[in-house]
Design a protein around this nucleic acid. Structure first.
Lengths: 185, 185
DNA sequence: TTGTATTTTCAGAAATTTCTGAAAATTGTA
DNA sequence: TACAATTTTCAGAAATTTCTGAAAATACAA
């Protein structure tokens, strides 16, 4: 497995960005390679192509499986495990998006729900809780919205994302359809 | 500056989550504290409340300023710099969202634009470039959509986020209004 | 079974990131 | 100008994360 300089650059970049997207360098690289590679790869091929240890590949694959970003395959007459990216680019993006929502929002929502159960003991705490409630409301809304988006059919999601500033007009349209003011701005 | 156990928990949690949101532990803590605190705080107060070094606070504040998440204030008769969170919770969320879009998408878009300029040299590279093009198209669309969302007026953003699965219906509504098929599904 | 291929685990090494604290730089005052 | 208050810087220490590679575990075939 020799990587073209193109592939090399792509893979290294995903390694660098990895930490911003929620995984470490080598997991990012493995994900990138499996994404541009059409043929399934086994652990040894990954280790060799990325020049990392076999053990690291094993851990990385475990993590990619936890993210549900890779699929396991078997080739007839070969006992090795082979992996491909799990689905189309859109599928992968959706999965990353969902996983990140879970990891970045849910723990905070859980904590805030807890904290907001307590009675504030003084002025100071009352103010702090007000802020926490605001944070909670916003994150809760964001969480639901992210959920809605990731459940949307690709066709609809595409339409929505292509609307651009047309979104405002559409929302206005809806307001009128529902029986709001009939006077357009 | 004594933190209530509520505030303590909130601050520590933001510290833990920090790395997932794009900043390190102490920056996360400082941000959290400034968010629930209504009064401006100076660097010494932050260091004392969070039990971290003065130097660390200085670096943290610099980073929060780079994120445009804090505002500098001066109190009459006091030479120290005082800081507050920059704006409402919604403002803060919007800022974090924008900054993250820049940091997480833009570098990759730039790289992919570059790579896609090269002529593929063989079958292998052609396939890889096809995938890269797909990744590019998706990230580009996502980037523009994120941009649109962060420019939306709060009122509209709120409406949109509250739509839930009503989004599909709204998109359908729009299709009809534009003169699509008149037969609803 | 036994043997071989393959994967997983995990202790310690290496790399990276974060943090401290003292010194340097800056700012404002008199 | 001299001086005191404040902030910033940054070398090295500490903490954390990532990675390696050998050993253990597992899976499968004969």
């Amino acid at each position: 497995m020799k990587l073209s300089s193109q592939a090399q650059a792509f893979v290294l970049h995903f390694g660098e960005m990895g930490s911003r997207w929620g995984f470490n360098r080598t997991v990012g690289q493995m994900f990138a390679l499996l994404t541009i590679q059409s043929e399934p790869l086994n652990a040894d091929q990954l280790a060799q192509a990325l020049k990392i240890s076999r053990g690291n590949v094993s851990m990385g694959l475990k993590e990619l499986q936890a993210w549900r970003l890779v699929e396991l395959h078997h080739l007839p007459g070969d006992r090795k495990d082979y992996f491909t990216a799990a689905g189309s680019i859109w599928d992968l993006a959706r999965t990353v998006f969902e996983e990140r929502r879970k990891r970045e929002l849910d723990p905070t929502l859980t904590l805030l729900r807890q904290l907001l159960l307590n009675e504030p003991q003084d002025e100071q705490e009352t103010l702090a809780q007000q802020k926490m409630q605001e944070v909670y409301d916003l994150l809760e809304l964001l969480d639901q919205f992210a959920n809605t988006l990731s459940r949307l059919e690709q066709k609809d999601l595409l339409k929505l994302m292509k609307l651009g500033s047309g979104i405002s007009k559409l929302l206005e349209l809806k307001a009128r359809a529902k029986g709001g003011s009939t006077k357009p701005t």
